[in-house]
Simulated scan of single mutants.
Amino acid sequence: MKILKSILGKSVHLQIILLYYNDRSFFTNITGLTEKTGKSHVTVRKVVADLLKANILKETDIGTSRVIRLNEDNPYTKALIEFLDTINNIENDMRFKSLIKDRRLK
């Protein structure tokens, strides 16, 4: 999703949202997210708090651990996934058209 990153920047919010978008079954804790993003524990905790407050993510108890996962039941999450799907489809379509154009030029 290069275009999305160029439009919205390389924010930690976007980075975390894309982790969950690219693997809807993905779940982890704050420590796991810090490892995946390479960002500080404090930064990740703030971003996760924002996304929990918006109900994009939700926390679930698994044994003694609290894990974070995508809240696919939330209408905002559904709209966000639709938006990301649309961007992804446009990007793939443009890549496909570019390949066809390149082949015609050869």
Rank of each mutant, 00 (worst) to 15 (best):
G63N: 07
F26Q: 01
Y21H: 06
L33G: 05
N88P: 01
V42A: 13
S25N: 12
T43L: 02
S25W: 05
I87G: 03
Y76G: 14
N92D: 08
H41M: 04
I68P: 03
R45K: 08
I100E: 11
A54T: 07
I7M: 10
L105F: 12
T28H: 01
K39P: 03
L84D: 01
K97C: 10
D23I: 15
H13I: 10
R24W: 12
G38F: 05
K78Q: 13
H41E: 10
A49N: 09
G63M: 06
I16M: 02
V48N: 04
K46V: 06
K10Y: 09
I81S: 06
I81C: 05
E82Q: 12
K106D: 13
P75A: 10
F96K: 14
T31G: 05
S6V: 15
L57W: 15
N71C: 05
R24S: 13
R103Q: 14
I30F: 01
S11N: 07
P75C: 07
L105A: 04
T43M: 01
S98E: 12
Y20E: 01
I68S: 04
Y20C: 00
E35R: 15
F96N: 14
P75V: 11
R24P: 06
Q15V: 07
N22I: 11
R24V: 06
L18T: 14
T43G: 03
E59W: 06
V67E: 10
A54Q: 13
L51Q: 01
E59F: 02
K78A: 09
I81K: 03
I68H: 01
K58D: 03
R104W: 10
T28I: 04
E72M: 05
K46R: 13
K36I: 13
S11R: 03
S98R: 11
Q15H: 08
V44G: 02
E91A: 08
I30V: 07
L19M: 07
L8W: 05
E91R: 07
K2F: 15
L14S: 08
I62P: 06
E59V: 09
A49F: 09
T60M: 00
H13T: 07
L14M: 07
I87S: 04
K78P: 05
N29V: 00
M1W: 14
L4N: 02
N71K: 04
E35M: 12
S40G: 11
T64D: 11
N88G: 06
S40P: 07
D102N: 11
F27R: 14
V47W: 09
S98A: 11
K10R: 09
R24N: 10
T34F: 00
L99T: 03
A79E: 14
V48H: 00
V42R: 11
N88C: 08
D102A: 12
R45I: 00
Q15N: 08
D50A: 13
I16F: 13
D85K: 02
A54N: 08
L70F: 15
D102E: 12
K97I: 00
E91Y: 04
F26G: 01
I16S: 03
S6E: 15
L57N: 04
I17S: 04
N55D: 15
L80S: 03
N89G: 12
N74K: 04
V42G: 10
